[in-house]
C-alpha cells in the first residue's frame, strides 16, 4: 500500500503518526483517502479541490509538478511526502 509521509505540523490529525498507509491509484486518490472524514485536515491541504499554495506533494522524492501533478499514478511501494511551508527560525 502507498505510504503518506506526514510533516509534524499535520500529525495532530494522524495520532502523531509520521507514516500512514492508504490505498489509491493516483496522488489525488491517495490524498483523498488520507484526509478521509477529517474536514480540518482536508481544509489544511486542499482549497476547492486544488493543493493549497503552501503545500507541496512529492512522490518518491520528486515534486509532483515535475510529474503529472495530482493525476500522477501511484504504485504499492510509493511514498507520497507532504511538505508544508514552515516559517520558524
Amino acid at each position: 500500500m502507498p505510504v503518506i509521509l506526514v510533516p509534524s505540523s499535520l500529525r495532530r490529525y494522524t495520532d502523531q503518526q509520521s507514516r500512514v498507509a492508504v490505498t489509491g491509484e493516483t496522488v489525488a486518490g491517495t490524498l483523498d483517502n488520507f484526509v478521509g472524514q477529517s474536514s480540518e485536515l482536508r481544509n489544511h491541504i486542499f482549497n476547492a479541490g486544488n493543493l493549497r499554495s503552501f503545500i507541496v506533494v512529492c512522490k518518491n522524492g520528486q515534486d509532483i509538478r515535475l510529474l503529472d501533478g495530482l493525476a500522477t499514478p501511484v504504485a504499492a511501494n510509493d511514498e507520497i511526502r507532504i511538505l508544508a511551508s514552515i516559517a520558524g527560525g
Binding site: P7, S8, S9, I86, A87, G88
Partner: peptide, 9 residues
C-alpha cells in the same frame, strides 16, 4: 532554512 517542532527544511 525553516524549522518548526521537530521538522526542518
Amino acid at each position: 532554512g525553516g524549522v518548526l517542532r521537530f521538522d526542518g527544511q
